[in-house]
């Protein structure tokens, strides 16, 4: 993926404080010294290339719905099949292997705490493995976006 200095400025400077005006991309364009259409075209290209997830919001956790982080210690020879079983739940939105005895880590997000527990119980029943439930108790992060450094 090739990015020029304007792409980089677009990614660095507008991770927060999207202008809350009727034409936000025009307001961004003015600060970047380019046209509104060019801002839109660049965001479209960066979204298609995967560098941008979306122009949108990060919400305070648990504003809508309920979620948890779960961890399992999966025997190596079962990891692929258990990971596929977990990923198949629409309620699972992140699922990673990590290098630890607890080697499968995933996030369950759905409508209610009861529904979250239902998914965890179901995974436990189907795999016969213990599922550690590690719900968020307190959020300390001040989210200012991610500082990008270009080297």
């Amino acid at each position: 993926m090739t990015m020029d200095p304007i792409d980089r400025q677009l990614l660095q400077d507008f991770q927060r404080d999207l202008p809350l005006v009727a034409r936000p991309y025009a307001a961004m364009a003015e600060r970047l010294g380019i046209g509104e259409t060019e801002v839109i075209d660049r965001l479209d290209r960066l979204t298609n290339s995967g560098a941008v997830s979306r122009v949108g919001a990060v919400l305070r956790p648990h504003t809508v719905g309920a979620s948890t982080l779960a961890a399992m210690a999966v025997p190596t020879d079962r990891l692929d099949s258990v990971a596929a079983l977990v990923s198949a739940y629409p309620e699972v939105n992140h699922n990673y292997q990590r290098d630890h005895r607890l080697n499968l880590w995933f996030v369950v997000a759905t409508t209610s705490a009861e529904a979250v527990h239902g998914v965890l119980d179901d995974i436990h029943q189907r795999t016969g493995l213990t599922v550690l439930n590690l719900p968020l108790e307190q959020d300390f992060h001040i989210d200012l976006g991610f500082e990008l450094s270009w080297t």
Binding site: L11, L18, L20, V58, D143
Partner: peptide
């Protein structure tokens, strides 16, 4: 809303 803007990967 914690943050409103371009969300990068």
């Amino acid at each position: 809303i914690r943050r409103l803007g371009v969300i990068v990967r």
